[in-house]
């Protein structure tokens, strides 16, 4: 069998997952300008919410997924209100925000592990019986295809919102200068609250889809988040298209990188690319 089509598909699948993570991360970062590590934990929040609704309570799959994404969004919003808002009104430095968000990530992981144990869980009811599509000899599953379509769909919606709606323009304005936005009459607190809700819901949705594809565990967030961050940085941080471009670029580099060498090199390759970009093109491929 020719391996090339599968390699390309694998890269697209991984790219679709990174896209989802990068989109939510980029939205939050682009607005509030700090690295929200707590965002990583929301993938697990989404995944475990669905695990609870769908597998434990037996609620309808689509309702569970929507509920899971909403819960991730609400938790993201609550964290913003309880943790980040007081720090921001105090004009805390980026370092303080980073440490606070690391605290959020660690605490959230610990709480999830206490409630659901640290066991790796799959969300799909019967593994391996999923519908599979064959494209040029390569294989992609239904879940993976949905992830891809949703990722690109969210990208398009976000791009349209930014371009045409007042809400999107307000977000952009806050990202450019929060103080001035306030002066011209934008309710920045309300808008940023919404940004956290939407960004977190996207992160939760990503966690849910990963749960159906492979599985979930409480500590899944950090490595996913890091991949999302790499994608955002190499693509152009704060830029919607940049995040997506970076996600697919990263996925292709990772998967083709381990074509001829052993798979444990994947992370070394991914972070090597990050360092190269930070050194030679820190603004990323596309500027904001």
């Amino acid at each position: 069998m020719d391996i090339l089509p599968q390699l390309i598909l694998n890269s697209i699948i991984a790219g679709a997952i990174y896209t989802m993570i990068a989109l939510g991360f980029n939205l939050i970062y682009g607005t509030v300008k700090f690295f929200d590590l707590g965002y990583g934990a929301l993938t697990a929040v989404g995944g475990y919410s669905v695990f609870y609704f769908y597998k434990t309570l037996g609620i309808n799959i689509y309702a569970s997924i929507i509920l899971g994404a909403i819960i991730a969004g609400i938790i993201g919003f609550i964290v913003y209100k309880l943790v980040y808002t007081p720090l921001r009104t105090r004009k805390s430095s980026g370092m303080v925000m980073l440490v606070a968000s690391l605290g959020v990530l660690t605490a959230a992981q610990a709480i999830i592990a206490i409630i659901f144990t640290s066991q790796f869980q799959t969300l799909s009811i019967n593994a391996g019986t999923e519908r599979v599509f064959t494209i040029f000899g390569g294989v992609i599953t239904q879940t993976q295809l949905i992830t891809l379509v949703l990722g690109l769909g969210i990208m398009i919606v976000m791009a349209l919102v930014f371009k045409f709606s007042l809400f999107g323009k307000a977000i952009k304005a806050i990202g450019d200068d929060e103080e001035v936005s306030k002066i011209v009459g934008i309710n920045t607190n309300k808008i940023i609250g919404w940004v956290f809700f939407i960004g977190s819901a996207i992160g939760g949705l990503a966690g849910i889809l990963i749960g159906f594809d492979t599985g979930i565990e409480p500590t899944m967030g950090l490595s996913l988040l890091l991949k999302g961050v790499i994608a955002s940085i190499i693509g152009g941080i704060g830029n919607v298209y940049g995040g997506v471009l970076g996600a697919f670029l990263l996925a292709f580099i990772e998967n083709f990188g381990i074509w001829k060498i052993s798979g444990e090199w994947k992370d070394a390759i991914a972070f090597g690319v990050l360092i190269l970009f930070l050194l030679f093109r820190p603004q990323g491929i596309l500027r904001r």
């Binding site: 694998n10 699948i13 991984a14 798979g263 992370d267």
Partner: peptide, 11 residues
């Protein structure tokens, strides 16, 4: 090989 934390062995 695969990293112990990785869950992606597709390639």
């Amino acid at each position: 090989g695969d990293d112990p934390t990785s869950k992606d062995l597709r390639t």
